[in-house]
Simulated scan of single mutants.
Amino acid sequence: MSEALLREILSEVSGIKKDITDMKLDIQALKQGQESMKLDIQVLTEEQSQIKQAVLETNEHVIQLTEKQNKQYAIFDVPSSRSIEQEAMLKRIH
């Protein structure tokens, strides 16, 4: 083989080695990105769990408030109805 051919082959091999090195760096960066995403997913999962708990607690409070409001409505409804009825009777009298 001629020296020129050997240099050309050596140049090609060097180029391939550089490409492989670049690919390894890219793969390493992808792996780091993947690890970062895994941590993000873990945090999001924990936050989702906390949000679910907060929603359940809020829902429970809303149910309690609704029950109290219904009781209060019932308490005020009877006197209010009597008052309206009494006013109607007073209008009929006058």
Rank of each mutant, 00 (worst) to 15 (best):
R7D: 07
E87K: 07
L56E: 12
A4D: 05
S83G: 06
M1G: 13
K91E: 09
A74H: 15
S49T: 12
I41H: 09
E12Y: 08
G15K: 01
E67N: 05
T66L: 01
K31Q: 01
D77M: 07
Q28N: 02
Q32Y: 10
T58M: 08
V55F: 08
E35G: 02
E67P: 05
Q28W: 04
E35Q: 02
S2F: 08
E3L: 10
I93G: 04
A74Q: 13
Q42G: 05
I20Y: 01
N59E: 13
E3V: 07
T45L: 04
S80Y: 08
K68R: 05
E85I: 14
Q69H: 09
I9D: 00
V13T: 10
E12M: 00
Q34M: 02
K17H: 00
P79L: 06
L6G: 03
Q50D: 14
R7Q: 13
Q53G: 06
Q34I: 04
I84N: 13
L44C: 03
V62E: 00
L39M: 05
R92L: 11
V62D: 00
E46L: 14
K31D: 07
L65V: 02
T58C: 00
K17I: 09
E60A: 12
I16N: 01
E57S: 00
K24V: 01
L65S: 12
R92S: 14
E60R: 15
Q28V: 00
Q69T: 15
K18F: 03
N70W: 11
E47F: 13
K68N: 14
V62R: 04
E67R: 08
D22C: 07
D26G: 03
L6Q: 06
S2N: 09
S80D: 06
I63D: 14
Q69A: 13
S11A: 10
E8W: 04
V62N: 05
Q42R: 12
S36T: 12
Q86C: 02
E3F: 12
T21S: 07
A54V: 08
E57R: 10
R92Q: 15
D19M: 07
I16W: 04
E60N: 10
D40T: 12
K17E: 05
E46G: 11
N70A: 13
Q34E: 06
Q64D: 07
Q50H: 10
Q34W: 07
V13A: 01
Q28L: 02
E3M: 01
Q53K: 14
E60I: 10
E87D: 06
I9E: 03
V43D: 10
V62T: 03
A54S: 13
N59H: 07
M23A: 05
S80Q: 12
K68A: 06
I41G: 00
L39I: 15
E46W: 11
S81G: 09
P79C: 01
R92E: 11
S14C: 02
M23C: 01
L90T: 11
S2A: 03
L90D: 13
E12I: 09
I51E: 09
S49L: 11
Q69N: 12
E47L: 15
E67Q: 07
S81M: 13
M89S: 11
R7H: 10
V55W: 05
I20A: 04
I16R: 02
I84D: 03
A54C: 00
R7E: 08
H61E: 14
G15Q: 00
I63W: 05
I41W: 11
I20G: 05
R82M: 11
